[in-house]
Design a protein around this nucleic acid. Structure first.
Lengths: 216, 216
DNA sequence: TCGCAAACTAGAACAGATTCTAATGAGTGT
DNA sequence: ACACTCATTAGAATCTGTTCTAGTTTGCGA
């Protein structure tokens, strides 16, 4: 009965990636003060737990407890575990984006700038393998609309085609950046399965990027 | 406690993709007669159920019931639902491979032959969307060693580089074919999420293949 | 200040995957 | 035929995600 979640709808336009807004869609919306805190506590608790034992350690009961909210409330904010995972991933992506802003890739070619970004993201995720595993897998499984691929694609376009946005880009450019993102995601998965080393990923990403982004 | 499955080990070398062999690893191994039947019945039951309502319809109790074995037995053959899904996917891949053998792609360039194969696989999966969804997602999630990507990579190498096998191929060739397989898997996922049409996938696969396999 | 609607809480209830138990069956070596 | 080992079975039990219920709290408008 995943369909009967008429509980609370998400606002039409999000200021953030995927937001599970716990307020009536229409009018007032003021209770947002403590709710932001609550949401934050929840996501933090979830991330902390996932950093330890992965998704299995991130049990809804435990998250709720650790965030100091009732289970029902947790489900009001995040209608399913996936939604919660998506939110955690959103935070991670925010981190990556701000890291990119802070220190933009400086390599000469679009391909090497893209590689730079992807490997930086890879290192970031490797630091918390359990978290990374939990996040990537769950994301891929998610019913939820996950802006993950799109955000990564946009990021790649931005750094490789010098500030190009998803809106301005041509179809082929989007396809190419998207394909590179796909390759990266799969490689990450293989790494988490223990079937790839960092170096192998780097080589593969470089090879793919060189061809996919040669004339972007 | 996924780790405490000292129940029954898999044989060192598989004649088939991923085999969950329900017999003692060592010596005799004769009980294999009815066990093959049993395994077959289980996989068939699972596939049939998944063709209907997807993974959720493929409930372990139901599979066991439909295959005429006890739940415990099902778990002896397939220690987790994922393992069962992997087995079902193996069958599907067998189907694809024999289809390729029967009618090999005849296009002129390596890239277009690869596209041919991938789109044929796509159409095959689209015919049973529930099954496809169940299979792909579960596969990606699986802890299980899944030969899926590798098998698809090998298949692509074979058709694009004219009979090249995974063993003979150079590292870069494997990387490139593997990357194309990654792109395909992700596109398939997007399609199953309703975010891609068949035509979009085809365009994207063509674009990626043209670049990745240009000189394979 | 009063009263309402929505949010929150504690905890029970439910569902499906996985594990465990006790008993039975089947194949093998003697 | 007998004893032994391992496979199988039915079913209970456990674990975790998700839903539901009843009661309490909170913020706001009248």
């Amino acid at each position: 009965m995943r369909s009967t979640q008429a509980t609370i709808a998400a606002p039409p336009s999000d200021s953030e990636g995927t937001m599970e807004n716990p307020s009536a869609p229409g009018g007032h919306s003021v209770r947002t003060r403590s709710q932001h805190q609550r949401r934050k506590r929840i996501v933090q608790a979830a991330a902390a737990l996932a950093s330890r034992g992965g998704v299995e350690a991130m049990q809804m009961r435990t998250v709720a407890e650790r965030a100091g909210v009732a289970l029902g409330t947790l489900y009001r904010y995040f209608p399913s575990k996936m939604d919660l995972v998506v939110a955690v991933v959103g935070e991670e992506l925010d981190l990556l984006e701000s890291s990119i802003e802070r220190r933009p890739p400086s390599a000469a070619t679009p391909a090497s700038r893209a590689v730079d970004v992807l490997m930086r993201a890879t290192r970031g995720l490797m630091r918390e393998p359990e978290l990374a595993d939990a996040l990537i897998r769950s994301l891929i499984m998610a019913e939820v609309q996950t802006p993950f691929g799109d955000r990564m694609t946009g990021l790649l376009l931005r750094v490789s085609a010098d500030g190009l946005t998803l809106e301005e880009a041509g179809e082929e450019q989007i396809d190419l950046a998207g394909s590179l993102a796909s390759v990266w995601v799969q490689e990450l998965l293989e790494m988490l399965r223990g079937r790839r080393t960092y170096d192998q990923i780097q080589r593969r990403i470089e090879t793919a990027a060189a061809r996919l982004l040669s004339d972007i």
